[in-house]
Amino acid sequence: MIERAISLLIISSLFFFFLLLTYYFRHFIYQFLSILVLMVLQGVLFLYLNAEFLAAVQIIVYVGAILIMFLFSLFLFPEEELKGIKTDVSRISYKTFIPIGLLVLLLVISLYRAVPENYSKQEFLSDIKVIGNFLFNEYWFLIYLLAFILSLPMVALYIFFRREDASRNN
């Protein structure tokens, strides 16, 4: 119990530190990097929730592929667009945050109330057979839907860069 508490204390303080750094930096690359650290820490937090497979997916797919793709496209922009990004508060009053804060508060409160006193811990979902059975028997429709959704970016790429190729051929 106490090891879990200590390690969660360390992780959450790291979380808070890098969250503050995100507001502090003015250069976009540095902001991105501190958000990246947050995402890696979130993958570590999944380990504490007995979701090893989710942690691996978070690190391999999310941090290792999607965010690297984002960093790539950041390098395509000129340096002047990336540095000196200022906080623009001119059109935002504090009233904007009231409904958001209320929403988040409501969410947290409802989740608090939903937790029973004696919760039952789940079995390990890291076993590949359990995951396979689970996905194949109960969530097969969802997997097909996902395959369909993931083909959308390809279609979008084709649509957006088609006109250019046609004009180049002419």
């Binding site: 090893e52 391999i60 941090v63």
Partner: peptide, 25 residues
């Protein structure tokens, strides 16, 4: 002694890419 040996190696390979790309930048 973890259950996820191969997946961890793939994850660290993905994270090591950041070292190279940041060295370049």
């Amino acid at each position: 002694d973890v259950n996820l040996g191969v997946l961890l190696i793939l994850a660290f390979a993905g994270l090591g890419t950041y070292g190279i790309i940041l060295a370049g930048y």
